[in-house]
């Protein structure tokens, strides 16, 4: 009964469509996450951020959203490893000498490496602020936790450094996802490329602004 769905999802195109959809979902998450974090810059006492964090954490739907988000990440990661392994096998013995024809970009050629680096960062980031997050009544402590983590040298290097692979990953991600979904049209191709790279820069610089502000500014 479901054989058509199984066949679709197991096909090369089906796997790539899943990669594209989960990836687009994760881009959506990043935009929301960045927007929320920007409340840190709203006032120097961190009131806006505390309000945001309290509202978010008191929402009973949060655990459901977190489970959904975890599934999105897991599907994207598991598929990435599967597809990469299959692609290596499809080549077999590789070329002794290889010169590209000029179409690859730093982002496109490094998707697996940047993906793994982002994953490593996410583990650190979850340990820092998810598993260690304060109780609901003490959310006002969170802004201080962020500040002390990001103003230290190690914290700065991790939180700033991780934005390099993220930006690279995103620079290929958006347009690649749309192409996989078949959304390609001469009227929009240029726009899609610009929006993809623009998104990568905005998200990358946006998140990088926090370690920069705390490390160099002392106080946001």
């Amino acid at each position: 009964m479901l054989s058509w769905l199984q066949r679709t999802l197991r096909s090369s195109i089906g796997k790539k469509v899943l990669m594209a959809c989960t990836g687009l979902g994760l881009i959506g998450f990043l935009i929301g996450h960045l927007a929320g974090n920007l409340t840190l810059f709203a006032d120097s006492e961190g009131e806006a951020f505390t309000h945001y964090a309290t509202t978010l954490n008191s929402n009973p739907a949060l655990p459901v959203v977190e489970v959904g988000l975890t599934l999105l990440f897991l599907a994207h990661i598991v598929l990435a490893f599967k597809v990469t392994r299959e692609n290596r096998e499809a080549r077999g013995k590789g070329y002794t000498l290889r010169n590209d024809h000029g179409a690859r970009t730093p982002g496109s050629r490094s998707m697996m490496i940047t993906g793994v680096l982002i994953l490593a960062f996410i583990v650190v980031h979850l340990i820092d602020f998810r598993f260690d997050k304060p109780e609901l009544e003490e959310m006002s402590l969170l802004a201080g936790m962020v500040e002390s983590r990001l103003s230290g040298t190690v914290g700065f290097l991790i939180y700033f450094g991780a934005m390099v692979p993220l930006t690279l990953h995103l620079s290929h991600a958006f347009q690649s996802a749309l192409q996989t979904l078949g959304l390609n049209h001469p009227k929009y191709n240029c726009l899609i490329k610009v929006v993809g790279r623009g998104l990568a820069l905005i998200i990358g610089l946006g998140f990088a602004s926090f370690p920069l502000a705390y490390f160099f500014g002392g106080n946001a």
Binding site: S12, K16, V83, E86, H101, R104, Q179
Partner: peptide
Amino acid sequence: GFGNCTNESECQA
């Protein structure tokens, strides 16, 4: 046994 496309566009080039 061909691989999965990752939209590198090397084929077109």
